[in-house]
């Protein structure tokens, strides 16, 4: 009796563990199953490389959105990584314990704020500033990059800090013993030793930035055309889905799902890079 129960529960636990496998499988089947036929119907090259997105005329080219996502993400990395990494170095190597107790919860708070609130903040604060500085609508690539740069800060800071802290103390002591200053020991010995962990943090940040939707939609302008300057409006793949899903039908709807497929492939590649880098860092 007890043995049967033990066995039964073990099987139940195993089934529970298999649910995440099932979930990934079902998600893949539904996204790819609905999106891939649409890509075939539109034509792979026309869809991926087409520069015109005009559902009214049945033209579906998402090249501007792919470029938009990449530009905005790259901008976010350019802004977020230096600030985040340096903040992490400060927290791990320079921060007095008392100040650390104050700073750490603040950074955790930044990670918990919903993206819709970030979007609102961007719309109300960053957009007017951009209007003043560059003129125009204030919505565009640069605005989106700045906001996304802020949004990936907690990810970058947390991952980098953990990895910098896990570098053996002996590295730092060795550098000090060779006559280096505290600052240079941290910067030139400890931080480079944590580089694979830092890279993992950056990749995680890329994943978050490229998948971000609600904040970007508020401030990127959302024009489905190729941006020509950093203040031009852009539409990301994520924004494309949310903006038009509400009223799209037939091939238009399928084209939006296909946009999801492309985004999903991007995410899978990023995930793969992340686990590769993490694996390398472990040994």
């Amino acid at each position: 009796m007890t043995r049967a129960r033990e066995k039964g529960m073990q099987i139940l636990f195993m089934v529970a563990a298999s649910i995440s496998i099932l979930a990934v499988a079902v998600i893949c089947v539904f996204i790819f199953g609905n999106g891939v036929p649409a890509i075939k119907e539109i034509g792979f090259a026309d869809f991926i490389l087409g520069r015109v997105w005009s559902p009214n005329q049945n033209i579906y080219g998402i090249f501007p959105m792919i470029v938009g996502s990449i530009y905005v993400t790259a901008g976010a990395i350019l802004i977020g990584v230096p600030i985040g990494l340096l903040t992490a170095i400060f927290l791990a190597g320079f921060c007095p314990a008392k100040l650390y107790k104050l700073l750490k919860p603040e950074i955790e708070l930044l990670a918990g704020i919903p993206s819709i609130v970030y979007g609102f903040f961007g719309l109300m604060v960053i957009v007017p500033i951009m209007q003043d500085v560059f003129g125009g609508s204030g919505k565009g690539m640069l605005t989106a990059s700045i906001l996304l740069g802020i949004m990936i800060l907690p990810t970058i800071i947390t991952v980098c800090e953990t990895n910098i802290r896990s570098v053996p103390e002996s590295y730092y002591e060795g550098a000090l013993a060779l006559g280096d200053t505290h600052e240079r020991s941290v910067m030139r010995v400890v931080v480079p030793a944590a580089r694979s962990g830092i890279l993992a943090g950056v990749i995680l940040g890329i994943g978050r930035a490229i998948g971000e939707t609600m904040a970007v939609i508020m401030i990127a302008g959302n024009q489905p055309v190729m941006p020509e300057s950093i203040t031009d409006g852009v539409r990301t793949m994520t924004a494309n889905i949310v903006l038009e899903m509400g009223y799209a039908t037939d091939l238009h709807r399928d084209a939006l799902i296909a946009t999801g497929v492309v985004l999903f492939v991007f995410i899978l590649i990023i995930n793969m890079c992340f686990s590769q880098v993490k694996k390398k860092g472990d040994c």
């Binding site: 490229i210 998948g211 939707t213 995930n271």
Partner: peptide
């Protein structure tokens, strides 16, 4: 790990 990397819009689409 894959699930935790999937952005919410993909979940929404699914």
């Amino acid at each position: 790990e894959t699930l935790s990397g999937i952005p919410s819009i993909i979940y929404g689409l699914f």
